[in-house]
């Protein structure tokens, strides 16, 4: 997934990535905005910074994200 700053996303599932922590299970179903995509090489394995509505800003693996609009 090539993510862009300002893009709206949904955390649609828990990630299997090691960086996924238990408290993040509560994010599933919430929407957010990409505030910092992977910094330079568009690596699908990179963590991206997402501001999750009502929860805060976190580095999340990309496999839990679904783009809501272009």
């Amino acid at each position: 997934m090539s993510l862009k700053q300002g893009q709206k996303v949904e955390i649609f599932q828990c990630s299997k990535d090691e960086s996924w922590e238990q408290y993040m299970d509560g994010f599933v179903g919430l929407h957010g905005i990409i505030t910092d995509p992977d910094a330079s090489i568009n690596d699908p394995d990179d963590l991206v910074e997402v501001s999750v509505v009502g929860k805060g800003t976190f580095r999340l693996p990309q496999d839990c994200l679904r783009v809501l609009e272009d």
Binding site: E49, S51, V53, G54, T57
Partner: peptide, 19 residues
């Protein structure tokens, strides 16, 4: 109150977004 249920304590989105 991050859930927003205690309405007087619902934080602003900008504050919640700031790491």
């Amino acid at each position: 109150c991050p859930t927003g249920q205690c309405v007087r304590l619902a934080p602003a989105p900008c504050q919640m977004a700031c790491p």
